[in-house]
Design a protein around this nucleic acid. Structure first.
Lengths: 213, 213
DNA sequence: GCTTGAATCGGAGCATCCTCCGGTTCCGAT
DNA sequence: ATCGGAACCGGAGGATGCTCCGATTCAAGC
């Protein structure tokens, strides 16, 4: 009864109270692998929850416990690049990371986001299909938004940076990007140039009256 | 037999080759009325195709023939206000209609759009849930876009107006608006002020170098 | 009226998203 | 080794979007 004290210290590493059971981790890996396979083999239209479950050899309920819903599965598939992206703009080398002037960092952020959309737009769009506000509630969106708010407030403390951050991110919507690439025939450079134009306009100090409406 | 000549003149009004069969028109009205009733009585979450069909006393197939899909039903419900809106900015009194300077017309357009979202945002969002690019393919979007492109090119012929029109409309997305109103606690005035800021920035002539990136 | 071709109707049926809950598996503690 | 409870598994099943096609209804021409 005295040795129990020692054993109870069985440290829970650091984060979650229960890290994850072995079978659960195995299933999660199998599900992500199955989803990736279906994605590359048959395209995003074939990426249904039932199919992913069948391909991974588990029940449908397991998919939903792991990922919550279809959007959660898509976000999990994007998790690797998302984490790398966040690391890059939070603590990577400039101009994306700290060290460059705010406007240059925002510009690097926008361009890097476009580069992500170039290969992941369909998956981003898929993640947004569940609800029209799903995108804005995701952790990825909140992080990006907070980053832009911080940089914008350095660049122009007089502006409504909370509004502007959402406006810039709206211009980076996956649906809009697909429309620009497929319907309008824009290339990535044109999208980036448009974003540059927006960014300059928004962060450049007013010169005229500023109230010429 | 000679009266047949008179009968054959049964003019098809003007537009469609076959105006619409009587039963079809009756069903369309019944379906729209049923949808409107469900919408006001039980909210948008209860607006399913099956329920609309049952409420109108017709089969589900009829709903799909009339409206194509869920987005089509939503657009049909918005058709009245959409037509009024288009009439207002295409041929109504200034500043929304012709007669005012381009930037003032754009500003009036943005404000009027916000006013629509104030009462119709959920329906707009519902119409967008089918596909991420559904919004951009709709006739309403194309009309609004063309209008903005025309006005923007008058205000600033040197800009990429095709990009800017979409960027402004992205800031008017229903999902973003709901997020701003519900999650962020913005009121309509703040959204309009943010749009004004964007508009001024985008249309105001450059004063600095213009390439300070 | 009646005929007749064509447009429309309607609901069975399929695919998908998601929920629910009884049975099973894991893993720390003894 | 084993035990017990917490966590997990899985598939039946409800709800919904959408499709398909035989039965029905409309309306133009006689």
């Amino acid at each position: 009864m005295m040795s129990s004290d020692v054993k109870r210290v069985m440290l829970p590493i650091v984060g979650q109270p229960s890290p994850e059971r072995a079978d659960a981790a195995r299933n999660r890996r199998a599900l992500l692998a199955a989803a990736q396979t279906i994605l590359t083999e048959r395209g995003i239209d074939a990426l249904s929850m039932d199919r992913v479950a069948a391909r991974a050899g588990v029940g449908v309920g397991t998919v939903y416990r792991r990922f919550g819903d279809r959007a959660g599965l898509a976000l999990a598939l994007l998790d690797d690049t998302e984490l790398r992206f966040q690391a890059a703009f939070l603590s990577g080398p400039p101009p994306l990371g700290p060290g460059a002037p705010p406007v240059a960092r925002i510009r690097a952020f926008l361009h890097a986001y476009v580069d992500r959309l170039e290969t992941e737009a369909e998956l981003h769009a898929f993640a947004d299909t569940k609800s029209p506000t799903a995108r804005h509630r995701s952790g990825a969106y909140r992080t990006a938004r907070a980053h832009l708010v911080a940089l914008l407030s350095m660049a122009d403390p007089t502006a409504d940076v909370n509004y502007l951050a959402d406006a810039l991110l709206a211009a980076l919507g996956a649906g809009l990007f697909l429309h620009q690439r497929q319907e309008l025939g824009f290339d990535a450079a044109r999208v980036k140039a448009g974003l540059d134009h927006l960014l300059i306009a928004v962060t450049e100090p007013r010169c005229g009256s500023g109230l010429t409406l």
